[in-house]
Each structure stands twice: as C-alpha cells, then as structure tokens.
C-alpha cells in the first residue's frame, strides 16, 4: 500500500517534468514568434536591477564599506539573491494569475478538469521568460564581483550553492503559494501576495545593516534572507556554514508543507466564481 503511494508520487513527478518540458518548448516557440516582446519584458526586469546597482555604485563612491561589507561583496550578495528570485519567477509565475484573477473570473475551473495535481499543472503551465532579465544581471554581478574578491573556495561550495539556490527558489514558491491560496476563500489575494512578496527587497542587501527586529523578521518569519544573504555570506567568508546552508533547506521544507496544506484546504473550500 505504502509502496504504491511512493510509486505514484514519483510517477506524478515524472509526468510533471515531462509536462514542464512540453510547456517550456511551447513558450520558446512563442518567444521566437514575439522576439521583440520577449526582449522588452526581460529588459524591463533588467533595468529595475541595473538601477539598484547604480544606486549602490553611487553610494559606494562615498564610503568604503557598509557595516563591514565592501562594494564587491554587496554586489555578490545582490547577484546571488537574483538566482532563487529569478528561477522562481521563471517557473512559478502563474501563482500571480491565480491570486489576481484566475479564481475571481472563474477560469480556475479548467485546472480541476485536468487529470493531474492542480498545483503541478498551475506551475508548469506558465514559463515566464521575462525572468531572464534578472538571471542575466545575477550572472553579470557574480562574474564582476568574483574578479575583485578572493573567495575562500572549496570544491563542495559549488554543490552547496546549488542546493541553497534550489531551496531558496522553493522558499519563494511556497510563500507565493501560501498567499496565493488565500484567493480560494476571498476570490482575490493578489494585493496580499504583493505585500508579502515585496518584503524580499530586504533580502538583496546584507542583513547586518538592519535593526534587530527587521533582521529577525526576514530570517525567521518571512525568511527571504535565507534565500540570499546567508548562503552568499557563507560563500564569501565561510562563516556559519551549518546555519547558512541548512536553514534554507529546513525553512523550504516547512514552508512547502504549509503551502501544500493551505493549497489543498483552499481547493476544498473553492467554489467556482464562474457563471
């Protein structure tokens, strides 16, 4: 019995990956059709990041370091934060549509008719190429900062960084799912999601600049700092290795459990708004 459930779980995951490939291919075809649109969308998110970098560059013209972090270290942390953020944007963008209008307009019903887990189909249906604007800036920042910093590099830092990025992405996705699910009861939760998601702005900079209360909130309550500052500062200085890598993993697992729970409760409570 239990054996069967595990098998079924893996079959679902396998199907999800296959569907993700199919939908991604579909979106790439769309990209080829609307090249200019893609460039503009990605450029939009790129410009947003570049302006924040310009801000940092201007203030670092005045000072050597911010609470002990040099210009290139801050760039490294900022760049690192864009990977979990960008990957979440790439794969889980449809949650915004759920929160803002799919449920309210009754269009959510279509997912209920599909022979696959609703959360999986909601996820794989959208593949938001705009996210490349963020990912490109992230790569550029890491590359630039690495030319000026001596990392205390050990080979296993690479798998650790990848784990941190993967689970960081899941932290983002889970928080979005939790707040998006509220729409099952209220028909629309885009604005609540917007408020929660916006707190991620705190995570792009070293948390040592914040007051203790803010630091606690972005580490333990809405833990966006775990997606960026902690793993990035581990890579930079090898400080707090256990907490920096383990905390994102644990937080992601806890948040994912909450997200799955709320989502399924929400589905039970869901009544179509359509006519």
């Amino acid at each position: 019995m239990k054996d069967n459930r595990i098998k079924r779980f893996f079959r679902e995951i396998h199907r999800a990956f296959r569907l993700q490939r199919i939908f991604a291919a579909l979106h790439l075809k769309k990209l080829m059709e609307y090249k200019v649109d893609f460039v503009i969308g990605a450029l939009g998110f790129l410009v947003e990041q570049v302006i924040n970098i310009a801000f940092l560059t201007i203030i670092f013209g005045r000072v050597e370091s911010l609470r002990g972090w040099s210009y290139y270290e801050v760039l490294f942390i900022y760049g690192f934060s864009l990977f979990p953020n960008g990957l979440d944007h790439l794969f889980f963008d449809n949650m915004w549509n759920v929160a803002y209008w799919l449920i309210r307009k009754g269009e959510f019903d279509k997912y209920l008719t599909r022979p696959i887990n609703t959360l999986l189909i909601v996820t794989v249906e959208e593949f938001q190429l705009d996210a490349f604007g963020k990912l490109i800036v992230g790569i550029a920042l890491i590359a630039t900062s690495l030319r000026h910093i001596d990392l205390p590099f050990i080979w296993y830092d690479i798998p650790l960084a990848l784990i941190a990025i993967l689970f960081g992405m899941l932290i983002y996705a889970s928080i979005k799912t939790i707040f998006g699910s509220i729409a099952f009861w209220t028909k629309r939760s885009g604005h609540i999601l917007e408020v929660a998601y916006n707190l991620n702005q705190f995570s792009q900079y070293p948390v040592s600049i914040y007051s203790r209360a803010v630091r606690g909130a972005v580490t333990y309550i809405i833990p966006f700092a775990l997606t960026s500052y902690y793993p990035a500062s581990y890579l930079l200085r090898h400080t707090q290795p256990v907490f920096s890598i383990l905390a994102p993993v644990v937080a992601a697992i806890i948040l994912m459990s909450i997200a799955l729970f709320v989502w399924h409760k929400g589905l039970d409570a869901y009544e179509s708004a359509g006519s």
Partner: peptide, 29 residues
C-alpha cells in the same frame, strides 16, 4: 483600494530598505 494600498505598502518597504542603507552610509562616512 486594497490594490493601491498594497502597492503603497510595497513602496514603504522600499523606503525602509533605503533608510537602513543610508543609515549605514552615514554611519560609515
């Protein structure tokens, strides 16, 4: 109204981040 209240909260968060950065800048300089 809930939408633009949410947008405004978003820009307040941005203000707070900027506030702490400037605090660090004034501290460092």
């Amino acid at each position: 109204r809930s939408n633009f209240l949410a947008w405004f909260v978003g820009s307040i968060v941005y203000c707070l981040v900027m506030y702490y950065i400037w605090l660090a800048v004034y501290h460092a300089s």
